[in-house]
Each structure stands twice: as C-alpha cells, then as structure tokens.
Simulated assay, not measured.
Amino acid sequence: MDVKEQIAKAVGRIANDKKLQEQFQKEPVKALESILGIDLPEEAIDQVVKGVKAKLTTDRLSDSVDALKGFLKK
C-alpha cells in the first residue's frame, strides 16, 4: 500500500465534504476506511491518520495566509 497515495486520496475527499470532515474528527479510522474502501492494516492506521491530519492542517493554514495576503494588498 502506498501510504502517500492513500493520504492524498483521503485529503481530497475530506477537504471537500463537511460530513466527512465531521466523521474524520470523531472517528478518523472509520472515516478513512470508508473513504479508501479498505480495512487499514494496524501498522498503517496511525501513519495515515497523522498524515491526513497534517495535510488538512497545512492546507487550511495556507488558505488563511493567502487570504491575509490578499487582504493586505488592498
């Protein structure tokens, strides 16, 4: 299993779906398993959850910085 590929797939789906975002916050493993359509092996669960959380946080921070830059240019 390519962990980076699975993280990218999950982030793409979660970032665009409020219900999945809520489910991921409450039950990250269950949310990822439903998105990816697989039972995650024990050794990959934490790695994928941490990767998705990090990517979602980074994307939100980047959006906020871009919005602030746009505001400051006005």
Rank of each mutant, 00 (worst) to 15 (best):
D2H: 13
D63M: 09
V52Y: 04
D2F: 12
P41A: 05
Q21G: 03
N16I: 04
D66K: 15
V52N: 06
V48F: 01
A15I: 02
F24Q: 11
Q47W: 02
D2Q: 12
G51Y: 10
R60Y: 07
E33L: 03
V29E: 15
V65H: 00
L56W: 02
T57D: 07
L36C: 04
K50W: 04
K26C: 11
F24S: 11
K9E: 07
F71L: 10
A8M: 02
K4M: 01
E5M: 09
I14P: 03
V29N: 05
A15D: 05
I35C: 14
P41Q: 02
I14A: 07
R13F: 09
R60S: 05
I45P: 01
K69D: 12
A8I: 01
L32E: 05
I35G: 13
D2V: 05
R60W: 11
V65S: 02
E27W: 07
G12W: 03
K53N: 14
V11D: 12
S64T: 11
Q47Y: 08
Q21M: 05
I35P: 15
A54K: 08
A8K: 09
T57V: 08
L72S: 14
D2A: 12
E5L: 08
M1I: 05
K69E: 14
A10D: 04
D46M: 02
R60A: 14
L36V: 04
A54D: 07
V52A: 04
L56A: 08
K9G: 01
A67Y: 08
A67D: 05
E33H: 01
L40T: 10
L68P: 00
K9A: 06
K69T: 10
G12R: 06
Q6N: 04
I38D: 04
G37P: 11
K30T: 14
K19P: 00
L36D: 07
K26T: 15
I35A: 14
A8Y: 02
K26Q: 15
